[in-house]
């Protein structure tokens, strides 16, 4: 049971990564990070349930719970920033924000 679940988790993570890299909408980029979190949650729970060695444990679930907390915090802050940026520039295009570049 472990392998298919972990495979699905890896696929979700990779899709999230692809989305993060290719999408240009700031909100969708954040959404893609959540997608990656989903993959990881699945992964953690699967490894907890079907560990490679030893009996099943609840640590995987516990980690997933903390991950949820992190994700929630990240979403709150990230979206606040997105709102701020949108008010600042009037666009959600990630390409519009290149202040990191040396002028």
């Amino acid at each position: 049971m472990l392998i298919p679940l972990v495979l699905v988790g890896a696929a979700l993570f990779s899709l999230g990564l692809i989305g993060f890299v290719t999408r240009r909408n700031l909100i969708i980029i954040f959404l893609c990070t959540e997608l990656m979190f989903q993959g990881i949650v699945l992964n953690l729970a699967a490894f907890g349930r079907y560990p490679l060695s030893g009996p099943p444990s609840l640590d995987g679930q516990a980690f997933a719970i903390f991950l949820l907390a992190i994700a929630a915090a990240e979403a709150a802050l990230g979206l606040a920033l997105v709102v701020l940026l949108y008010r600042y520039r009037g666009t959600l295009d990630a390409n519009a924000y290149k202040v990191l570049k040396d002028s």
């Binding site: 890896a10 899709l15 990564l17 890299v21 290719t22 999408r23 909408n25 959600l92 295009d93």
Partner: peptide, 22 residues
């Protein structure tokens, strides 16, 4: 639709990276 929603950036490289990883 906003243009930044309808046009992906670097789709080939992104897919390549993601799927090689996968």
């Amino acid at each position: 639709k906003a243009p930044y929603d309808t046009e992906a950036r670097e789709p080939l490289l992104g897919c390549l990276a993601g799927f090689v990883l996968l």
